[in-house]
Amino acid sequence: MRSLPPLSIFVFALSLLIACSHEQDATAGSPGAVDVTAAWARPSLPPHENSAAFFVVHNRTDHAVQLLGASTSRAGVTELHHMEMDGDRMRMRRVPSFTIPAHGELVLEPGSNHLMFFELPAPWVDGEKVDLHLEFDSLPAVDVLAEVRPL
């Protein structure tokens, strides 16, 4: 069998590289496909069993993206919660995911959608930063720091 000339190997390697980077684009999206801004969390209150975090997710892709879950080193359990007012009644529920529309944004804020944390090993104190790891359905996870500040 005739060995391949060095140029062919180079071209083959190059095409592999391009294919790989294309594949990464297809599954992972270009950098900044999803941006998370204005992340903050509220301080925990005695007995320091729970807290909540808020931020804005910007979706720069052409398709809707789902925020499927989140975690932090600062809580045993992280859940997605939705709170709404029905007249003057406050209602809070756990939801499986949040949708960020194509070229749209998802706002997590007090009195509405938020991340809810349980089983805090230590209180969350004003001024410190809490790490958040956000998982999406079709994009790589995003890590952000949320500053703890008063409501």
């Binding site: 729970n50 009644r89 406050m90 529920r93």
Partner: peptide
């Protein structure tokens, strides 16, 4: 005023829906 205990599939176990006046 109004309040109601609502079971949650959550670490919170349950929440209280309640009026906010």
């Amino acid at each position: 005023a109004f309040f109601e205990k609502v079971a949650l599939d959550s670490a919170a176990v349950y929440t209280m829906d309640h009026s906010t006046r």
